[in-house]
Design a protein around this nucleic acid. Structure first.
Lengths: 113, 113
DNA sequence: CAATCATATTCCCTTATCGGCATGCGTCAA
DNA sequence: TTGACGCATGCCGATAAGGGAATATGATTG
């Protein structure tokens, strides 16, 4: 089996730097594909492909506007990512050397009481 | 060019569900590889491979303990992920339906002036 | 040293990427 | 209707992923 499809979940979709760039750019408002590609220095087909992935995981919505197709942000899918990473918050605030070893020692000491 | 290497950055490393499982499990303390593999229902080589990726992006540390090798969490690398996703917080708090409704209200209010 | 246990690495296979390029398809204007 | 424009899709090539199985490496014990 190869890596799971990027279209399968949000974590995979945002693993690609250019797709993260697209999401950040879309915070400032909707954009047609060509403008997006120009602002981020990618080809039009390239942008379309990344947008497709983002659409399939629900991070982006599109609507027709005449000849153009406007892409807009739908960031709700990023909330689980934020919360998942947030679950580790207390771990990156601690000084790390030997923290686990220290915890183990505490457990042992408690059992020996 | 193919997909970027999973060892290249944290976003890629956590794109794989089993690796996220490993990180979550390690919040409860250090573990030798075999125990980790057993608790998560993966093979020993499978666990070792995932741990290698996590180690190369700095999300886990290992230390020798006799015959075993204990893996422990180093969650500092998850902080950028948390912050990046947090940058979208104000966008997921408004449902899009309500946002549209809000825009309609603005339009109406403006016409009634 | 030999045997054993814990872990890492290698090889093989199937599959998914990402980029470039060409082309298809829909929409609008003349 | 015929172009021109905007975007999506298809195909190709190169690369790397992740699982399984076998094997190598490393440390410990007898």
């Amino acid at each position: 089996m190869a890596r799971a499809a990027t279209t399968s979940d949000v974590f995979n979709a945002i693993a690609e730097p250019q797709r993260r760039d697209i999401l950040v750019l879309l915070r400032t408002g909707e954009r047609p594909v060509t403008e997006l590609a120009r602002e981020l220095g990618m080809t039009q087909p390239g942008a379309s492909k990344h947008l497709r992935v983002l659409r399939e995981v629900g991070l982006v919505r599109d609507r027709k506007a005449g000849k153009q197709r406007l892409y807009g942000l739908d960031a709700r899918g990023l909330r689980p990512v934020h919360e998942w990473a947030g679950g580790f918050e207390r771990f990156w605030n601690e000084s790390f050397d030997r923290l686990d070893a220290y915890v183990q020692e505490l457990k042992q000491a408690r059992q020996e009481e």
